[in-house]
C-alpha cells in the first residue's frame, strides 16, 4: 500500500512540476551536467509489479503448482493510464492465448532481450550513462544494452530487439523515440504484446536526486485501436557500491530451449 501511495504522490509531484508551479526550486535541486541538462546518470530500478502485468491485476497462481509461491503473480495497481489496453478484437484473444501459454512463449523466460519499454520495469537494475552525444542504458537483465542517439543518426538499418532510439531534451525531460523493434518482445509476463509497427515515445523526467518519472506512449495501429500510455517512478539504487551484476542468463535456458535435442543416455 505504502508503495502505491508513493507512486501516486510522485505522479502528483511530476504533474506539479510539469505545470511549472515550482520550476525555480527544481532547477536548484536536481543535479545537472555542465551543459545544463538534468543528470540521469546512475543505477535505477522500478519498484513495480508491472512485469507481471502492466494492467491492474490481482495475485495469481504460479506457473506450475509445485512452485508454490515462487512465480506466483504479485498483485499490482498497474501502470497503464486508464487501466485497460485498447486491443483490437483479434489481439485481445491473442493476448489471452499468450497468457495461457506464457511458460512456453514469454521471451523473458528464454533470456531474450526484453525490448522497450519492458526493460525499464523488469525486476533488475539498469544504469544510465549520459554524455552530450549519446545516452547509454545498460540493463542487468541479459546484459542488454541500448544507445540513445542525441544526434539523429538517420533511419535504422534493420529491426532490433532493443530498438532504434533517438533522443532530445524538451525542457528538463529526455524524450526518446524508439522505433524499429522486433515484434517478438512482450510488454509483460501476462502476454501483452505488440507488432513490428510498435512505436514508443519515452519521457524521462528527474523528480528528485533519487527519483525519475518514466512515461511512455505506445502506438501500434496493427494491434491497438488507439495509442496508450504508461507511467511509473524509477528509484535510484542508493546502496553503497551498488553496481550492475552479471545476469547472463543463456546458460539458465539452454535446457528449456535445446533440451529436446540432447543425446539420450541410452543411445
Amino acid at each position: 500500500m505504502l508503495r502505491n501511495q508513493c507512486v501516486a504522490l510522485l505522479s502528483l509531484l511530476a504533474l506539479a512540476w510539469n505545470s511549472q508551479v515550482s520550476s525555480q526550486t527544481v532547477v536548484e535541486e536536481i543535479p545537472r551536467t555542465a551543459e545544463g541538462t538534468p543528470r540521469l546518470d546512475g543505477i535505477w530500478q522500478a519498484l513495480s509489479e508491472a512485469n507481471w502485468d502492466i494492467r491492474p491485476h490481482a495475485a495469481g497462481h504460479a506457473l506450475l503448482p509445485e512452485l508454490g509461491t515462487f512465480t506466483a503473480i504479485h498483485p499490482g495497481l498497474g501502470i497503464v493510464e486508464g487501466g485497460a489496453l485498447p486491443y483490437q478484437e483479434w489481439a485481445a484473444a491473442r493476448q489471452q492465448e499468450n497468457f495461457a501459454n506464457r511458460l512456453e512463449l514469454d521471451p523473458e523466460g528464454k533470456c531474450f532481450m526484453p525490448g522497450v519499454p519492458r526493460a525499464t520495469y523488469m525486476p533488475f537494475p539498469f544504469q544510465i550513462l549520459q554524455t552530450p552525444d549519446l545516452v547509454m542504458i545498460a540493463y542487468q537483465y541479459a546484459n542488454a544494452v541500448r544507445t540513445i542517439h542525441m544526434n539523429d543518426p538517420g533511419p535504422a538499418p534493420n529491426n532490433s530487439w532493443m530498438g532504434w532510439s533517438v533522443g532530445r531534451w524538451e525542457g528538463d525531460t529526455l524524450v526518446v523515440n524508439v522505433t524499429d523493434m522486433s515484434e517478438q518482445t512482450w510488454f509483460d509476463r501476462a502476454g501483452n504484446f505488440h507488432s513490428e509497427a510498435l512505436r514508443v515515445v519515452e519521457r524521462y523526467t528527474v523528480l528528485s536526486p533519487n527519483h525519475l518519472l518514466y512515461e511512455a506512449t505506445i502506438e501500434d495501429p496493427d494491434v491497438f485501436t488507439r495509442p496508450w500510455s504508461i507511467s511509473l517512478p524509477l528509484y535510484r539504487r542508493v546502496e553503497e557500491n551498488i553496481e550492475l551484476m552479471e545476469f547472463k542468463c543463456v546458460e539458465f535456458v539452454e535446457e528449456k530451449i535445446y533440451g529436446h535435442l540432447r543425446k539420450q543416455s541410452d543411445e
Binding site: L129, N143, A144, V145, N241
Partner: peptide
C-alpha cells in the same frame, strides 16, 4: 563511453557490456 565515474565497454560480439566503476571500490 565515459562519464566521470564510469567507463562502459561494449563489445559488439554477444553485446558483452562491462560498466566499470572508477571510484576505487573493492572488487566483488
Amino acid at each position: 563511453v565515459q562519464t566521470e565515474d564510469y567507463v562502459l565497454l561494449l563489445k559488439e560480439m554477444v553485446h558483452e557490456t562491462r560498466v566499470v566503476p572508477l571510484d576505487g571500490r573493492p572488487h566483488l
